[in-house]
Amino acid sequence: MWALFYRFGQIKGWTFNEVFLTYGIINLSFAMAEVLMRGFETNMTSLIRNGDYDRYLLRPRNTVLQISAFSFQFVRLGRAMQSIVVLCIGIVMNAGSITGVEWIILLFTVVGGWLLYASLYIITGIISFKIMQYTEFMSIFIQGSVSTMQYPMTIFPAWIRNIFTYVLPATTVSYFPISAILDKSTSVPRIVGFGAPAVCYIFFIISIWIFFKVEKSYVSSGS
């Protein structure tokens, strides 16, 4: 990334220092979601196919919590650490614009991002219920949005921007709030940028709700 900026200086009005923020936020949210929710992607299929999901349903606890807890990924904490470092550098470099309320927005954004990726994993789980197969194609959205959203959205063509805004609300936790924090001009008023991560909170709630709906249609495999 550094090499990229060294050559071009800045991208469409974004400086090297400022991109640290989007990069840090997206990677931190993704890494934390991976630590906690990876089980929905990797374990879900085998849980359902082997009928081991029965056991989760037989315990008097939340199933989402159980899936998450039984496949907790310590290894992924490494990525989280790395992105925390990047984010801290980003904050230091942009210390001028981050005062008071911006701190809260930043936290709001990171949690929003985490919820966004958590929702994506949950959606993977939902699809597993339906087709009982490993859903490789979900990685396109998960990995794809991570590698695109760590850079400011303006560098991408419009159709990519639209996908990651309206289909998958990834820009709401990177481009819009960061622009608002840095007080850059975008297509929307600054206050909308601050509030944008809220979309991900709603997205998460809907995902969980659908998950529990679909869970009811679970047909255990024979034994």
């Binding site: 009928g51 081991d52 056991r55 349903l57 037989l58 315990r59 008097p60 034994s223």
Partner: peptide
Amino acid sequence: SRKEYVKNIGVMFGQRSQ
């Protein structure tokens, strides 16, 4: 109300381990 109900039951599958 699954969570309430399963507190009072136990299930053992001979072919699967818990």
